[in-house]
Structures are given as C-alpha cells and as structure tokens.
Design a protein around this nucleic acid. Structure first.
Length: 207
DNA sequence: AGCCAGGGTCTAA
DNA sequence: TTAGACCATGGC
C-alpha cells in the first residue's frame, strides 16, 4: 500500500479530520504539553484558557505560575521552561506566523529544532499546524501503524520519504494524515480495514 | 495496584 | 552514535 492509498483509506473511514488549531500559538502551547502525555489530558488542562491564550500574557507570567497552570500534563517544570523559550523565540517574529513567510522550510525547521525541549516530532507539528509547511510528522502511532502494515523501516528518515515522496506536497494533507492516524490509533480495540489488526495501545493481540 | 501515555535531553560505553 | 535512565501526573 502506498502512502496515498493509506490516506484514502483513512479518509473513507473517518472522513475529513479536524485541524489542530487555527491559532499558531495555541498549537505551540499544546504541542509542548502533549509530549509524552495523552491528548485528552491536554484538552482538559487547556479547555478553559485556549480561547484567550495570548503569547504576551504567557510572556509576562512567571514561570512558576505557568508550571501550576500546566501541572496536570506532567513534566511541568521542563515544559514550562520550553514554553517560555518557544514564546521568546516567537516574539522575534512579533508572534506572527506570516513574518516567517520568506524563510525556507529547512531554515525554519532548524530554528525551531534548536529550541531546547523541542525535538523532531514537535518541530514538525509546529511546521505543519502553526506555520503551514509540508514537513511530515512522525510519531509513535505512525511507526506502529506502518510496522503493523508489514513495513520494516528502521529509521524515521525512511518513513519520512515513504510519505513525502508519495503524498502531494501540501501541509494540509500532511496535517490530515497525522490526525487520521491519531484517530485510528486511540481508544479503539477492534480490527480495522486499514491494518487488519488492532491499533489500540494496550492491546496485546498479535496477528 | 501498577502500568503507561503521540517526547526530549543527557550520559555512558 | 546509540541505547537507556530520567522526568511527573492522571487515567484506567
């Protein structure tokens, strides 16, 4: 199965996926919180603040107050520091994604990746959902899905090529594929047409 | 009760 | 350069 065929199949099953957020800063904030943490926990923690989340407010907030705010997502000390660094970096672009428009994908990604606490996956999340760049996101679910489909990639670079060489070079498609894999992987324990096996995290079934 | 979550950094060999 | 320890909290 090609990456395009996988995408089509997931679309047939789940329809048009949701988008992360139209607000780039919300994407940044939540992308840090979700590191090694469930998405539902991030939603609960941020539900009451996303509507009014403002980088300038976070900028002036003390780090310890920020820690308390995000504590339910775990790793609060590290994540608060990362959010602060990310906010500082974004302030250099006046908190406007448009200000990065003249940068190449490569340059933008390497700047984001250089921020401590932001690794490869989080960088690509920001590239796609906050900055509208076609940089494919590889997460644990993606690796597992491919493995269960019978592919034997041994590094992320090969997985990236599998998707980027086949899918249209379109940040929306990349974002949708990522979210579809998430939809497909969470909270279900049943065989599916895509992988003919259960993708539920805790399912020990083998086939 | 205990296991583990969509990650990232640092260190030891 | 890479595998493994560590980080912390909530859900089931």
């Amino acid at each position: 199965m090609t990456a395009n065929e996988l995408y089509e199949k997931l679309r047939q099953m789940y329809g048009k996926p949701r988008w992360w957020s139209d607000d780039p800063y919300v994407v940044m904030f939540q992308a840090v919180l979700v590191q090694n943490t469930s998405w539902t926990q991030v939603e609960k923690t941020t539900a009451s603040i996303v509507a009014t989340l403002d980088p300038e407010k976070i900028e002036t907030m003390s780090e310890s107050v920020l820690e308390e705010l995000i504590r339910p997502c775990g790793f609060a000390k590290g994540k608060a520091a990362t959010i602060k660094r990310l906010t500082d970096w974004f302030s250099g672009y006046d908190f406007s994604a448009d200000r990065t428009a003249d940068m190449t994908n490569e340059n933008l990604r390497s700047e984001i990746l250089s921020i401590k606490g932001v690794g490869a996956e989080t960088s690509d999340v920001l590239m796609v959902y906050a900055f509208h760049r076609a940089s494919f996101i590889i997460d644990a679910y993606t690796r597992r899905l491919l493995k269960r489909l019978g592919y034997d990639f041994d590094n992320d670079a090969d997985i990236r090529s599998f998707f980027e060489n086949d899918l249209p070079e379109d940040y929306e498609v990349y974002g949708w594929v990522h979210w579809l894999i998430l939809d497909h992987s969470i909270g279900r324990c049943k065989k599916t047409p895509v992988c003919e096996g259960c993708l539920f995290l805790k399912c020990k079934e083998r086939w």
